[in-house]
């Protein structure tokens, strides 16, 4: 350190002051809400009326209710299906395949690869609520483009949002989020020099062998982190499902974020909604700690 220890305390004091505006905002809108949710989860706080102004302490009633609530079991199951379907199967598998395809095409000098790359990215950068609107139209039973497409190949129309709502929201979220996985794997694949593949080919290695020996070792270390990352973001999905199905029909697509919202703002049970938020935050914190540990271990 260029400057002596004598002035280090004074220097730090100013730096801590410099951190304070940001720290204030983070405390107010990240730590504050978490504590507020925890506090409210022990009360019968309501959205309107007497219990809104003077919530009563109810101890662990909300938690007892939550863990015996059959709807909550359903909601957790829905969330798990949605995460497995749209993050792990949809985004991860499709993203990986697209990365392999685009990397291969770029090594071949196919210019169309850049266009495809842009198309996948476009679905990802647009605001999520617009993605919801676009898929409302795509899934429309009578006029939607998806059923029109099925008609062209002679298949009967599907009542996407009525009969297969979970599949519908999974398709929409796969469409929206595939770019993330694709970008990460494409970045990793780029680091493999073409010469390695050439040399392996000259040595007579099959395509499968080349993939196994040279491609997989590059992808494996980041695969777990990518999965965890998209699991976290998919677990918090709210606006996409709200615009498409609003959790319905009959709770079939009600995931945890929607359940907290509906309990607080439709059933006016803010205390109970806060309890659900607390559970969600706790699950997310567990994911995040694992994520940060793994990323530290990797470097």
């Amino acid at each position: 350190m260029a400057v002596g220890a004598r002035s280090s305390l004074g220097r730090n004091r100013l730096y801590l002051a410099g951190l304070s505006p940001a720290a204030f905002l983070l405390a107010l809108f990240f730590v504050g809400p978490a504590l507020w949710a925890l506090g409210s989860s022990f009360t019968n706080r309501a959205l309107v009326g007497l219990d809104a102004a003077n919530p009563r302490f109810v101890g662990l009633d909300n938690y007892a209710h939550l863990f015996s609530d059959p709807d909550f079991g359903r909601v957790i199951l829905n969330s798990v299906i949605f995460v497995i379907g749209s993050a792990i199967i949809g985004q991860f598998v499709l993203g990986l395949l697209l990365a392999l395809l685009l990397d291969h095409a770029q090594r071949r000098g196919f210019l169309a690869a850049n266009f495809v790359y842009g198309a996948v990215l476009l679905a990802w950068v647009n605001p999520t609520i617009i993605a919801g609107f676009l898929w409302v139209a795509m899934f429309d039973f009578y006029n939607g483009s998806l059923n029109a497409g099925l008609g062209v190949i002679g298949a009967p129309p599907v009542n996407w949002l009525g009969q297969g709502p979970m599949l519908a929201v999974i398709i929409a979220n796969t469409w929206r989020g595939t770019a993330f996985t694709m970008l990460i794997f494409l970045g990793a694949l780029r680091t493999i020099p073409s010469d390695i593949y050439e040399a392996a080919r000259v040595d007579g290695a099959s395509a499968v062998r080349r993939f196994w020996d040279h491609t997989l070792p590059i992808l494996r270390p980041i695969a777990a982190l990518t999965l965890l990352s998209i699991t976290m973001s998919t677990f918090g999905t709210f606006i996409l499902i709200q615009t498409l199905t609003n959790g319905g029909p009959a709770y079939q697509t009600e995931v945890i974020a929607l359940y907290a919202f509906h309990e607080a703002f439709q059933n006016h049970a803010v205390g109970y909604g806060s309890t659900i938020s607390v559970v969600m935050l706790a699950l997310n914190l567990a994911f995040a700690i694992v994520f940060l540990r793994w990323s530290r271990a990797r470097a």
Partner: peptide, 15 residues
């Protein structure tokens, strides 16, 4: 950074 805002919607409203 990993905190989902959909999880803090209810408390942020209240706060």
């Amino acid at each position: 950074q990993t905190m989902p805002i959909s999880a803090t919607m209810v408390p942020i409203y209240g706060l």
